[in-house]
């Protein structure tokens, strides 16, 4: 598991509007890459292009390349459904399926690939994924309760369990802690540290401390003004980015002068 992604010269359009321009970066395997930047700078938009979730929005399209394992994710014969099975995603707000039990939520993705799974195997996957998401001990006695019966932080970890149950190569996290309290946030951050042994993780965060705490590399996105496209200003090791970034804008943002 876990692969790197090479993004080169990527533009994202909504219809005619250029939202993100000329992103080139390497997302390293088995590491956490954080994307930071002010609101509207295109970091979430960019993140969603990595598993082609941007295509959910009518008129959204991409130019450029994102290559994983020698395959261009936007290649002509690449099915977005296939891409998403390899590159999982966790959203800003916890979104377990309310109509499913905790166990069924974990199995939701697995069942898409493999309808008839023996019961024992199902139980094994549920336990593995929930353990992997640091949730097993809290929910093992109520796997048949609705997913919506959990607290916000637990729901988010359930969503992470759901994403890793299918053993993806990459895990994309779109501000996964922004709707959570500090304790739950800490739980997710600890979890991310464990997960990076097995997965390539890309996280978008508004919280610079979070980026500094959890990530190995940090990319800074910025926008020149309203209506202008977002750009990747620079990307480097997190320690470098937070101590001696090469760009003035990065330093200004990190030191809290704007954003």
């Amino acid at each position: 598991m876990s692969k790197r992604i090479d993004v080169s010269d990527l533009d994202v359009y909504y219809g005619d509007f250029l939202a993100v321009e000329g992103v080139t970066m390497t997302i390293e395997a088995r590491s956490i890459t954080a994307l930071i930047g002010p609101s509207g700078c295109g970091k979430s938009t960019f993140l969603r292009t990595l598993n082609r979730m941007h295509e959910v929005i009518p008129g959204a399209r991409v130019e450029g390349k994102a290559v994983m394992d020698g395959v261009d994710l936007y290649g002509k014969h690449v099915d977005p459904v296939e891409v998403r099975r390899q590159i999982g995603m966790v959203f800003q707000r916890p979104n377990p399926f309310p109509t499913m039990s905790i166990a069924d939520n974990v199995l939701a993705g697995v069942k898409l690939n493999n309808r008839r799974l023996p019961r024992s195997e199902q139980e094994e996957i549920v336990e593995r994924a929930l353990t992997g998401a640091n949730l097993w001990n809290e929910v093992k006695d109520r796997l048949n309760r609705p997913g919506s019966s959990l607290s916000g932080g637990q729901q988010q970890r359930l969503c992470i369990a759901r994403a890793i149950a299918v053993r993806p190569q990459v895990l994309l996290m779109d501000e996964p802690c922004s709707a959570l309290d500090p304790i739950s946030t800490l739980a997710i951050e600890d979890l991310m540290n464990e997960l990076k042994d097995d997965y390539t993780i890309v996280i978008v965060t508004h919280n610079m401390q979070q980026a500094a705490r959890v990530s190995d590399r940090t990319g800074f996105f910025n926008i020149a003004g309203t209506g202008k496209p977002g750009r990747l200003i620079e990307i480097d090791d997190t320690s470098v980015m937070f101590s001696s970034p090469s760009q003035k804008a990065t330093e200004d943002y990190i030191s809290g002068r704007f954003g």
Binding site: E82, F97, A108, G109, R162
Partner: peptide
């Protein structure tokens, strides 16, 4: 919820 499902492939 729709996106959750689509993101699972």
């Amino acid at each position: 919820h729709e996106e959750a499902s689509l993101a699972l492939g």
